[in-house]
Simulated assay, not measured.
Amino acid sequence: MYAIVDIETTGGGAGARMTEIAVFRHDGQKVVDTFHSLINPQTYIPPFITQLTGIDNALVADAPIFEQIQDSVRELTKDAWFVAHNARFDYNFIKREFLNIEEYFERDLLCTVKLSRKIFPGFKSYSLGNLCESLSIALDNRHRAQGDAAATVLLFEKLLYHDHKNLIPIDF
């Protein structure tokens, strides 16, 4: 199983918090479950983040806090590889959110940036947008968790198909 994840945040600094999450649980053939939610970060969202994502303070004012969605995140990522584009970034935010509620969160990581460099060598850029363009993957709702995660699912399926060196583990 693979949990393909994307998040949006209030920024990249130490005090930054999550504002949105999408998780697609994938069995190596197809998506078998999904979860998506805005998250109230309980902190200010800077204008440059709002400009990038479209997520502002008003949009998340009535959204659940992380504690209210933790069960869904835990269940969809349990016993699965944690897959994301720049996986360490998304993983560290989620790990920190679990630490905030005094729970240790640990998953094995697969990064689609690193895998793409090995499976599709020679591209000028391995950003999600450029990879999607190069590989003819639809990327709708850019810089939003559900849109980016859906594109990462399609990228991951192409990686699985073209992984002739067996770089992607097929069992957990």
Score class of each variant (00 low, 15 high):
60 V>G: 03
70 Q>V: 12
32 V>Y: 00
77 T>W: 03
34 T>Q: 12
130 N>W: 08
48 F>P: 09
84 A>I: 09
80 A>I: 06
97 E>Y: 02
79 D>Q: 14
85 H>L: 05
134 S>Q: 15
130 N>H: 12
91 Y>G: 07
59 L>V: 14
98 F>A: 07
41 P>E: 07
131 L>A: 07
53 T>N: 00
34 T>I: 11
62 D>K: 11
37 S>G: 08
135 L>F: 12
118 K>N: 08
111 C>Y: 02
104 Y>L: 14
121 P>T: 05
98 F>G: 09
128 L>I: 14
99 L>G: 07
99 L>N: 15
49 I>D: 05
123 F>T: 12
63 A>P: 04
137 I>K: 13
70 Q>S: 15
134 S>D: 13
53 T>F: 00
117 R>H: 00
104 Y>C: 10
40 N>H: 07
82 F>T: 10
75 E>S: 12
75 E>M: 11
48 F>S: 09
107 R>W: 03
122 G>R: 06
131 L>R: 06
119 I>D: 01
47 P>I: 11
50 T>M: 03
80 A>K: 06
53 T>Y: 00
42 Q>P: 01
43 T>E: 13
77 T>C: 15
76 L>F: 02
126 Y>I: 13
116 S>A: 15
106 E>G: 05
100 N>R: 12
57 N>F: 10
133 E>V: 11
95 K>W: 05
135 L>C: 12
48 F>W: 12
80 A>W: 01
57 N>A: 12
33 D>Y: 08
33 D>K: 15
117 R>K: 13
90 D>K: 06
69 I>P: 03
110 L>G: 04
136 S>N: 15
128 L>P: 13
80 A>Y: 01
102 E>W: 10
91 Y>A: 05
96 R>I: 08
59 L>F: 08
96 R>V: 05
95 K>Y: 08
69 I>C: 00
80 A>D: 04
74 R>T: 11
96 R>E: 13
133 E>T: 15
113 V>R: 01
87 A>L: 05
115 L>F: 08
42 Q>W: 00
134 S>M: 14
112 T>A: 00
